[in-house]
Amino acid sequence: MNSNYTRIFSSSFILAQTIVNQLKEIGIVPVIKDESESGRLAGFGSAIQGNQEIYVHADEVAKAQSIVQKIIGA
């Protein structure tokens, strides 16, 4: 992953999509990494199904983390 991007969240598909939608509403376009889906498309299985990682540009980390905190309630 490009060093200009920082992982801000990793969890289930449903929770990750909620965060992605909220980020897009405030103008942040995240990068979603889904190893299990990539493996499935390549013909391999994965023990962890549906786990996604969300990355944002380094300039947007603070704004993005506030959205994550609001959604997960931490």
Rank of each mutant, 00 (worst) to 15 (best):
I71G: 00
K63T: 01
S10E: 14
G73T: 04
I28P: 04
A62Q: 10
K24S: 07
I71H: 01
V20F: 04
S3K: 13
A42G: 05
T6H: 14
V20C: 09
T6W: 05
V20P: 03
F13W: 07
Q69K: 11
Q52E: 15
T18H: 06
A58M: 08
N4T: 05
F13P: 00
Q22A: 14
E53D: 15
G73M: 05
I54V: 07
F13D: 10
L15V: 08
S66R: 08
Q49H: 05
A16G: 05
P30A: 08
L41Q: 13
E37H: 03
Y55L: 15
S11N: 14
V68A: 01
S66I: 00
I32C: 10
I19Q: 07
G45R: 13
G39T: 02
R7P: 10
V56Q: 06
G45V: 08
S36A: 15
L15Y: 06
Y55F: 15
A74M: 06
G43W: 12
Q69H: 07
I32P: 03
S10A: 11
D34A: 04
F9M: 07
V56A: 07
A16Y: 05
L41G: 11
S38V: 10
V68Q: 02
I8H: 03
T6A: 12
S38D: 15
S38P: 00
A47N: 09
G50K: 04
Q17E: 14
I28D: 04
F13K: 09
N2R: 11
G27H: 02
S3I: 08
A16C: 07
N21C: 08
S3H: 09
V29Y: 13
S12H: 05
K70Q: 10
A47V: 09
S46R: 08
S3A: 13
N51F: 07
G39W: 05
I67T: 03
S3V: 00
Y5L: 12
I72D: 02
S3E: 15
S11E: 15
V29M: 13
G27C: 01
G43R: 12
E60W: 00
Q65V: 03
R7E: 15
P30E: 11
K70A: 05
F44D: 08
N4P: 02
Y5C: 06
S11Q: 10
D34Y: 02
A74E: 14
G43A: 08
F13G: 01
V68F: 02
S12D: 14
I19T: 06
T18G: 06
E37Q: 07
G43M: 11
V68M: 02
N21F: 07
G73Q: 13
A47R: 11
R7K: 14
G39A: 09
A64T: 02
I26C: 03
Q65A: 01
V20G: 06
Q69V: 00
D59I: 02
I72V: 13
E25C: 09
V61K: 04
I54E: 13
D59V: 02
A62P: 00
Y5A: 03
E25A: 11
Y55M: 14
K24Y: 00
I8M: 04
A16E: 05
I72T: 10
S10F: 05
K33Y: 13
S11T: 03
V31L: 14
T18P: 01
A42S: 09
K70F: 00
Q17V: 00
I28E: 06
A47Q: 12
